[in-house]
Every structure is written in C-alpha cells, then in structure tokens.
Design a protein around this nucleic acid. Sequence first.
DNA 1: ATCGCGTGATTAAACGATTAATCACGCGAT
DNA 2: ATCGCGTGATTAATCGTTTAATCACGCGAT
Lengths: 363, 363
Amino acid sequence: MAEITDLARSGPKLTRIARTLGVSAATVSNALSGKGRVSAEMVEKIRATAAELGYVPSQAGRALRTGRTGVIGLVLPDIANPLFPQIAQAIELAASSSGYGVLIADSRGDVSTQTKAIERLIDRDVDGLVIVPRRGTRIADVGCPVAVIDTPSTPGNTVAADHWGGGQQIAEHLKALGHRRVLIIGNNPASNVQNDRAGGIRSVFGEGFHTDTLWIEPLEKLAGKGCPLGLAKKVAEGYTAFACISDLHALRALTELQRAGINVPEKASVTGFDDLIWSPVITPALTTARMDMTEIAAIAVAALVKAIRERDPSDPEIGAPVTAEKAKVPMHLVIRQSAAAPPQLIQATATAAPSVTEGGHQP
Amino acid sequence: MAEITDLARSGPKLTRIARTLGVSAATVSNALSGKGRVSAEMVEKIRATAAELGYVPSQAGRALRTGRTGVIGLVLPDIANPLFPQIAQAIELAASSSGYGVLIADSRGDVSTQTKAIERLIDRDVDGLVIVPRRGTRIADVGCPVAVIDTPSTPGNTVAADHWGGGQQIAEHLKALGHRRVLIIGNNPASNVQNDRAGGIRSVFGEGFHTDTLWIEPLEKLAGKGCPLGLAKKVAEGYTAFACISDLHALRALTELQRAGINVPEKASVTGFDDLIWSPVITPALTTARMDMTEIAAIAVAALVKAIRERDPSDPEIGAPVTAEKAKVPMHLVIRQSAAAPPQLIQATATAAPSVTEGGHQP
DNA sequence: ATCGCGTGATTAAACGATTAATCACGCGAT
DNA sequence: ATCGCGTGATTAATCGTTTAATCACGCGAT
C-alpha cells in the first residue's frame, strides 16, 4: 500500500521568493527564465530558494500575461476506438516531455460533434491541437496550430504511419509464405487509412494473384451488427489468407474460422494491423503490422510545439495544419503464429518466412 | 468532405462588450454571471451583444482571479488498458457537461510515475482529480478534491461498479446453466477489483460446487508472456466453465480452447468482464458483465464538482477522497453465446438460461 | 571632470476577469 | 425638508506573471 501525500498546490508566489531574498519579483522572473540581465550569483541564489520553497509558477498568471497556456488539445475520432490508448499514451508522453498538458475531447458521433469538441478546446485557450480526424473530415482554419494524424496520402496530414507501406509488408509476408488468393477485410472504404492499407496490400499481388475486398460496415447494414462474415465459404472458394485492415477484424475473422473448424494458420492464415492489446495473447498469436505511435506522436508534438513557439499569440492566423520534416513513419511487421504457408504448401515452404519473428512464450 | 472553419479564439474581451454598450466591465461581468445587481433590461442587452460578438470568457483571466481553472485531471493506472476508452469517454462526457475540461495523465509504470502524474496535474492547477488507482495504491492528501474510482470494498473509494455483485451475476448465470466445476481466471490477486470479482463468483458456488482460481501474472513469470494457460488439461479435469475476470482473459481462454478443438460453448463455457470492444463480434460472442461507466463517471464527476464548488480555493485543505451518495453501481449481465449448458446437460437444460439475452445478428 | 556605456537591478504596466466597496439617485416616511 | 434605504451601476483592487522602460552606478575614454 503506497501512500501519496502532500502535493498541495499552495506554493509560494514569485513575490514571496523575491521578498525572501530582498529583490524584486521581476528579477526572480528573469532569473528563472534566463531572459533579462541577472548576475550569475543572483541566479544561483534564486534558483536555490525557489527549489527550496518548492516554487511552481502559476499557469493562470503566466497564461494571462503570455497568452500561452502550455496545454494542447487532443481530438480523437472515436475515443472508444481500441487504438486510442496507444495514441493517447504516446501523445501524452510526448507532450509532457515538452512541458505541455493534454486536454482531451471526444468527437464521438458525427462531424458536428467533432467541431464542437474542437471549439471547446479552443475556448479553453489551448495552444495547439492534435487531431486524428474522423473519416473524410478535412481540418482547416481552426485558429491555432494543428497537427493532423491521418495517413500520408491525405492532404493536410502532418505525420502518420505509412499505412500503404504496412500493407505492402503484410502482403510481402503472405506472398513469401505462398499465398495466391487473399481476401482483404476492412470496415469502411471511406476511411483513408483503411484504403491505404488495402491499397498497399493489393499493390503487391499483381499478375497471377487474386485479391478481393470485404467491407464489413456495408455488410452489417444488411445483416446486422456482429453478423458472420461467411469466411468458411471464402475458404471453400480457394482463399487461403485473410488480410484484415485492423486487429479487431482479424480477431473476428480468426474466431469465426476456428469456430468453423478451419484451423489457423494450418488451413487459413489471418493477419491484422495495429498490434492491439490482445494480439500477442490469443491463440494463435496474431501476425500484424504495428505503427510506431511513439515516434508519430513525438513528431506531431514537436512540429506542433515548434509552430506554437513561432506563432504570435495575438494574431488569429488561421492556417493549414503544421508540417513536419518526416511525414511518413514506417510500420513494423510483427510476425507471430496466425499466418503460415497455405495448406498445399506446408512441407514445401516450411522455412520461407522472413526473418523477423517474435517468439510465443519464452520466459 | 466536411470542412471545419473559423473557430479563431480571438474573441472580444469583457471590456469590449462594456464599451460597446457604454457600461462598465463590472456590470457586464455581473450580468453574465447573474451575481451582482443589474437591471433586467441591461442583462438582456448584455446577453445579446455578448452572443452577437461571440464572447468567450478568458479562462486564464478567470482562473487567475477565482483560483479555479475549470479543469479536472484524469489519472489512469495504465492508459494502455483496453478499458480506458470507456472510462475516458464517460468522464470526458460527464465533465464537459458540467463545464469542465479534462486533462489526462498516464501513470504508466509504477506508483512513482503515478505520483509524478498527479503532481503534474496539480501543478497545472486542476480543480480536482479523478483517479483510477493502480493496484494497491491508496490515494490520500493530494491537495485538491479527488474522486477515486476503484471498487466499493476499497477504503477511500468514491464510486465504482459493484464488481462483487457482477461476479455473482456471472456465477448465477453459470450455475443456472448447470455448471458445477468452474475455473476463475484472473491476472493478479493484488488488484482489489479482480479480487472482488473473483470473490463474488466464489460466493455463489457453495456446497456441492467446486471453484479454483488461476492467476495469469504469476504463471507468466514462470512460463513467459503469452504462454498457454493449459486449459485443455483443466477441461480434462472436469472444469466446464471458465469465468474470466476480464474480457481480455476470456478472449485468451476462448481462443486457446477453440484451438485445442474444445468448442465453446458446447464443450466448455467462457465468460468475461467489461464488455470490451471485441466481445460482441468474436465467435462465439462473449457473455460478459458490463460496468455502467456512464453512470459511474456521472457520479464521480458530480461528487467532485460539488466538492470543488464548496471548497475554499485558498486553503490547502488536504483531505480524503470525496464521497458520493451512491458508491456502488450495479453491473449488467450481457448474455451472448460463449456460455451454455455443460456437455452432459445439453438436452436436459436447454431452456434453463435466465431471460436477458442479446441476439447475435439480427438487423 | 565629464560623457558615454555596459551591467545589474527596479518600476510599472499589462494580461482579463471578478468582486467588495462605493456612489448617485429617486422615493417613501418621519 | 430631511433622513434612510433600496436599486442600479461604477470604481478600484486583486489574482501572479512577464516584459518594456527606466534607473543607479561604476568605469574607461575623451
């Protein structure tokens, strides 16, 4: 039982430090920020007593004077999305490392909710925004610097994973294993991210291969939420691999197949995207492609912070999303057990898989 | 392609409205807050022009004067936890309905990280905190009002789902289906939540029944992350149902069983907790118990806001977590397909299941 | 001796809102 | 006619920090 104690925010003000040392508040401010002209020894003394007294500057006072709150807003398309924890965690880490706080807003629901959410954040004087846009939304003219995380092919995108490239990696892997008929399973073709992933996969399977795409959302419109995807039939049609656009779909496919007595990966391979929390612990563990959210977040926040620093807080410069030097972060193929050679080829290509493997359960 | 435009935060100040109407800033402030003495017609005029000019009060100015930022902090044990989206979404909704913003902080890692996270939030002058503590942490004396969401049996808990009751509901369901030997699968007995859920389950199976508990974390310490749980052997030992403390474990159990050729629910039943995102879409869809996060969040935020309003912002009253009238919110049993009568009893008790059922896939 | 200048610190204004204290004024009561 | 009082609005102080402008002072150069 650890105790957490004594974090009271009733700290001394600037003036208190000033009075303690017999100097003016301005000097203290200058000393701590390193801006004005203060003698080295004075700086040292001030630093010391500030630390000793546990001085923490009042954000409110500072914000009022400087017009900067030191807070950025994080707007997510659907906070219930299982990818959200990864994103939020990465952004929060990157932001707090740069001294920024993260205010969240959920654009659960439609685009208008997203607009409202953005508005709320702006009204709270955030210095900038990180937005993961809803499908088909374009972000423009928000009134403060904005970093957009979507997909490299979207105009206005600041930084994102190379979804297309990730699709290619998945596809190359399946191809090397010997698959020739692959079914791509996605949710909704209106999503740029999903489209890019699917496109990357297709781009690898050229002449002599066959791919088709199953979009779940339209299917569920007809057959109801959580309806079967009819994958057993697809297997009968000769499909040997199911390349899912998200681990969530992969999970759905995998359980449906296993349930139908089609063992994965012996009789059919399944791959996913995103390396969600459950992917390593299901049986068989999921082969998938992971985004480097840490790097993406770091780039997004860095670009945002740069824009914030350069910006004159007074002018309402409504501009396009900020740009980063590196807008495309490669995805990482995580090879586990859910994809293997198709049934006909099991003996022939037992060692055909690429090299990067992740073990199942060594201590 | 929707466009989001023109949300610039360069709005007019109080003084601007005042000057427009030829009154003092104080009058405007009073009119908008309804506090001082302002004539009805004046109030009306001020309201109108404020709305027309799109006035949004500066949080910084207000915060400086009142000592209230209108922001609460949300501290989560592990932001990567799949439950997080539900919690964050619910808290954000409840908070923004009460006019509060939500600043997030991740206590990824150990308790000291949690302390740091709390400290960061306090330094940002949050008015209060909602904390979902890490296992075994007790929150005390933070220096601002705190709502703790843990489990009713934990001292200092403000509000939480009735995990014990949820366990009972799951257990009653399994019992009604005819199960007599049940294996409880959890992660770590140090978690109050997990303990309560397991305890609730056990409490239902008295004389003539058998339960045992499998804790994953200790097992993985020996056998490695993502190791098999050896459930086939358990089935051979006569266990017919696996009551998992979280849907994540249920998923793991379910895939392991199916993979071993033990069909769920025909040969073994699996239940979970939390109704995580994938639970409705896997095959078979997961029978589970869901927390009413919306209500929990509403209660937590309401209690927190009440404490904030009553508090004198100047005094560093370090106190215990706030209390709510209703500290225990019932869980809801969600019956799907992953639990059914045990093999021996299939014919005998085909209709023995309780009534609340959720269909698999009707449009 | 005086001017100019660099150094180290101070003064004072400003950010935008809130609020206690004050004030002007009209009206009924003494 | 004057006092008291309620009403509606204003004044002015305050929250804590930043920063441009100012100031005192010592020192080397003219």
